[in-house]
Simulated scan of single mutants.
Amino acid sequence: MSKVCELCGKGPIVVNSVTRRGKARAAGGVGRKVTGVSKTRQLPNLQRVMVSRGGVGVRLRICTKCMKNAYAA
């Protein structure tokens, strides 16, 4: 089962997770240092929803942004 919205096509993205140590300069320290960068995946918030298409109920996996736009109209 793919992690892609069936209406808009939104899927997972790859982002950097930055690990830092130290105390910020604004708080009286010498500054924050980057100690590591690793890649992580951010997945869309998919929900299973019954949608009527042509009078027939179809179960789709759609993201919450599409749900919000569909029910707002």
Rank of each mutant, 00 (worst) to 15 (best):
S2K: 12
T35S: 06
P12Q: 04
S2L: 08
P12L: 04
L7W: 14
R21S: 08
R61W: 08
S38N: 12
P44G: 07
K68E: 13
V4Q: 08
G22P: 01
C8A: 02
S52W: 02
V30S: 15
R61C: 02
G55V: 01
C5G: 10
L60N: 02
C5I: 07
C8D: 06
A72H: 13
S17C: 09
A24D: 07
R48H: 06
K65Y: 06
K3N: 14
N69E: 15
R61E: 11
L46Y: 09
R21M: 08
V58R: 01
V18P: 00
G29C: 07
L7G: 00
A73T: 11
C63H: 11
R59A: 12
G9V: 02
R61P: 00
A26K: 14
N16S: 08
K10V: 03
P12S: 07
K23L: 09
M50C: 05
K39W: 01
K39M: 02
M50Q: 07
V14P: 01
R48Y: 03
G9D: 03
C8V: 06
V56Q: 14
V37T: 14
R61V: 01
R20N: 03
K23S: 09
G55P: 06
V18G: 02
G11P: 02
A27D: 14
V14H: 05
A70Y: 09
V49D: 00
N45T: 04
